[in-house]
Write a protein that binds this DNA or RNA. Structure first.
Length: 310
DNA sequence: ATCCAGGTCGGTC
DNA sequence: GACCGACATGGA
């Protein structure tokens, strides 16, 4: 698909890491990189002067855009970029996805308000672990917990800027104990992460088999984990495994569904789940992310920070 | 200060 | 089923 390295970076002053650095670009349309990386589906991306960096499946990578392209560079040489094309879901025809959304006013507005928003395809274990850590936490805090966990317990990754760390493997976490995990500020979620890591590390839970299952069965496997209910399970199924109709219903989506489809009436969570499972079509998961992103942005638009004090 | 955050769990009625 | 409080931690 893409040439391995369109440009290899090498200068006389380059360190050994820099001389192996690798850069490429992808022509894209309808791809809002910033919204996609920052909308609460992934928790590792940091922005610094217009560029986004993270560690994806153990590889440090930096991304940036111009009008036509997404540019990427890594610290290590790449023989191909399929891992990144897959992560960013570059081949997805967004217009075709949007065309399956229900033709109603809320979805038309959400699609118009979030033009270019995409779903990523994340590494399943990292996705599961991250969302185990997400319950009743704000997105900024989830990022902080995940960053601490990676810095303390993940393997270091070759990078060009700040030191970077891979997400800890199940084995790396399984080798810890609850107190070590609590030191990463994850509170009561620590034992949940620990038992999930140990089940996977011991082979008692095989995430690799999940994609072969029907949605309901896959969901049942995940919900069997302590600390994983229907919402977190659907996040993992959608963002990690790509089940297109997985539909995470969190507090924001509840708010959006009630406001847009039930005239702000009190509707029980099971009823909202039932509605969402049938109303949003073959790419319901995508529709969910558009609702989530648009209502969060609307609410924040009304928020005005207090003027800075001197 | 008080409420709430990309929830889940184990109780109640 | 529906409703409730506990669970850690820190932003707003």
């Amino acid at each position: 698909m893409t040439a391995p390295c369109t440009r290899s970076i090498s200068t006389s002053a380059a360190t050994s890491a820099e001389s192996a650095a690798c850069e490429t670009r992808f022509a894209v349309r309808d791809y809002d990189l910033a919204a996609t990386l920052d909308c609460g589906q992934a928790f590792r991306w940091k922005q610094s002067n217009g560029r986004w960096s993270a560690v994806v499946s153990g590889r440090w990578v930096e991304l940036w855009r111009d009008a036509k392209y997404i540019f990427a560079r890594t610290a290590a040489p790449q023989s191909d970029w399929r891992w990144l094309e897959n992560y960013l879901q570059l081949p997805v025809d967004l217009a075709a996805v949007l065309a399956t959304f229900p033709d109603d006013e809320p979805m038309r507005r959400a699609a118009a308000a979030c033009r270019g928003l995409r779903l990523l395809r994340q590494e399943p274990w990292e996705c599961l672990a991250s969302f185990i850590l997400s319950s009743t936490k704000q997105i900024v805090q989830i990022r902080q917990i995940v960053a601490t966990l990676c810095a303390r317990h993940g393997s270091s990754a070759l990078s060009l800027g700040e030191p970077a760390f891979a997400f800890p493997t199940p084995a790396q976490i399984a080798a810890l104990n609850e107190d070590r995990l609590r030191e990463c500020k994850m509170g009561f979620r620590a034992p949940n992460l620990l038992t999930a890591a140990r089940l996977i590390d011991s082979g008692k839970l095989d995430l690799g088999g999940i994609p072969e299952l029907e949605l309901a069965e896959a969901r049942a496997r995940l919900v069997a984990l302590r600390g994983v209910g229907p919402k977190i399970a659907d996040c993992v199924l959608l963002f990690g495994f790509g089940f297109p109709t997985a539909f995470p219903v969190d507090v924001w989506v509840v708010k959006a569904l009630r406001r847009f489809y039930f005239r702000n009436r009190r509707v029980s969570l099971p009823k909202l789940r039932q509605f969402s499972a049938t109303h949003f079509g073959p790419h319901g998961g995508y529709a969910q992310q558009y609702l989530f992103h648009s209502i969060r942005r609307d609410e924040r638009k009304n928020f005005r920070p207090a003027p800075a004090r001197l």
